[in-house]
């Protein structure tokens, strides 16, 4: 089995990529109510590429600001902390991972759409979960796929191709051949990089929501459903996975009704457009 060698290799992966570290620092700063816009600006400016991309996105159709935003200071003032946190996080993750054979565009379109959709679900279900936490979880839930692609390209390419060609569940083929799946791999690395438990736990259980830690349940269930909704629409991570359904209990637990379905489908179509912009302006 490849499991042990994969874990050993992951243990040797270095520190988190710079941009990711910066965006985590921003995340930490924004949680602190005493943080000022100037402080956040200073951290973003540490990375010129990040700064440029933040400005591009701030001026994009997503926000439709009337006047051109020329400085970070303006961007932070106009869009607010929360939005800045989401933008930096998106740029950071999409620039921190290479892809060798996984379709980069498809993969990130899926993850970013999923992230936005989580926040839309939060609103629609009125669960009052933290939107920023949801966003990060949505963004990172499949990150193990890219990690496997990046560090174990040859064997993972085989795994991926089998799943795509025979339309098998990706984690099942991963388990079968590698003895580990992308959810575990993602969680393992994020844990090593000291991402918060709530992220690690949700990433770990995004196919098995019944295993979530009780304290992260709401987050995890939304990620699970958002993932389903994206996959149902063909906005999959590149594995072409089309889901058979979801756990009915989760739907009820989140207080959704069938009358919500049309709006959810509208949401996913709308969020995909936003995700495309982020990817176009913030991507590699």
């Amino acid at each position: 089995m490849y499991r042990n060698s994969i874990l050993q290799r992951l243990n040797k992966v270095g520190e988190a990529p710079t941009m990711l570290t910066i965006s985590l620092e921003i995340d930490r700063l924004i949680r602190d109510p005493n943080t000022s816009a100037a402080q956040i600006g200073r951290v973003i400016r540490l990375d010129p590429a990040l700064t440029g991309k933040v400005l591009k996105i701030a001026n994009s159709a997503i926000y439709a600001t009337r006047h051109r935003i020329v400085s970070l200071q303006q961007a932070i003032a106009r869009l607010g902390f929360s939005e800045i946190r989401r933008i930096t996080m998106s740029i950071a993750v999409i620039n921190s991972f290479k892809s060798y054979f996984v379709d980069y565009e498809k993969f990130w379109l899926h993850s970013i759409t999923c992230a936005y959709l989580c926040t839309a679900l939060n609103k629609q279900t009125n669960r009052k979960a933290n939107d920023d936490e949801l966003y990060i979880n949505g963004l990172l839930h499949d990150i193990g796929v890219l990690v496997l692609d990046q560090y174990f390209t040859t064997i993972y390419k085989k795994v991926f191709e089998i799943a795509v060609k025979r339309r098998f569940d990706l984690p099942l083929v991963e388990n079968k051949i590698l003895g580990i799946n992308h959810a575990e791999v993602g969680a393992f690395l994020l844990n090593r990089w000291k991402l918060p438990d709530r992220v690690v736990n949700v990433v770990m259980n995004h196919h098995q929501p019944q295993k979530l830690d009780p304290e992260h349940e709401t987050l995890g269930k939304m990620v699970y459903l958002a993932n389903f909704i994206c996959n149902n629409r063909g906005i999959d991570n590149g594995s072409g996975f089309f889901p058979e359904g979801f756990y009915d209990d989760i739907w009820d637990e989140l207080g959704l009704s069938v009358e919500d379905v049309p709006q959810l489908i509208d949401s996913v179509l709308l969020e995909t457009e936003k995700a495309k912009e982020i990817l176009r302006l913030g991507g590699l």
């Binding site: 339309r167 149902n232 629409r233 063909g234 089309f242 058979e244 359904g245 979801f246 756990y247 009915d248 739907w251 009820d252 959704l256 009704s257 069938v258 379905v261 049309p262 489908i265």
Partner: peptide, 16 residues
């Protein structure tokens, strides 16, 4: 009775 089935039904999307 199943929301999951109804979601699939409403979406009108089916695999091969």
């Amino acid at each position: 009775i199943s929301p999951s089935a109804l979601y699939m039904a409403y979406s009108g999307r089916y695999n091969n």
